[in-house]
Simulated scan of single mutants.
Amino acid sequence: MTENSRPLVAVITGASSGIGEATARHLASAGYRVALLARRVDRLESLAAEIGDGAIAIEADVTDRDALVAAALRVQDELGGADVLVNNAGLMLLGPFGSEQKDDYKRMIDVNLLGAMTATEVFLDQLTANGAGDIINISSVAGRTAVAVNGVYAATKWGLNGWSEALRQQLKPAVRVTVVEPGAVATELPQHTTHEGMRQGIQQLYSTVEVTGDDIAEVITFAVTRPRHFAIHEVMARPSGE
Rank of each mutant, 00 (worst) to 15 (best):
L36T: 00
Q191A: 12
P227D: 08
A116R: 00
L189M: 15
G115C: 10
K157M: 05
D125I: 11
M198Y: 05
Y105C: 13
L167Q: 00
A223Q: 12
S29D: 14
T212S: 15
H192Q: 10
S164H: 00
G95R: 08
D110M: 11
H195R: 03
D215I: 14
F222D: 11
G31C: 13
N4P: 02
D64T: 01
I202Y: 06
V9K: 04
D103S: 12
A60N: 09
P190F: 03
I220A: 14
G131F: 02
P173H: 09
F123P: 01
G115V: 09
V141K: 12
L189A: 05
E234R: 14
L37N: 02
A186S: 06
D125H: 11
I58R: 03
N4Y: 04
V224T: 02
P182F: 05
D214T: 12
N130W: 05
R25C: 07
R25T: 06
M92H: 01
R6W: 15
E100M: 09
E196M: 09
F97Q: 14
E50L: 10
G81A: 12
V141P: 05
F222V: 05
A186M: 07
A166T: 00
A82N: 08
Q76H: 09
D66Q: 11
G143N: 07
S46V: 04
V175L: 10
A174V: 07
T193D: 09
S207D: 11
A142Q: 05
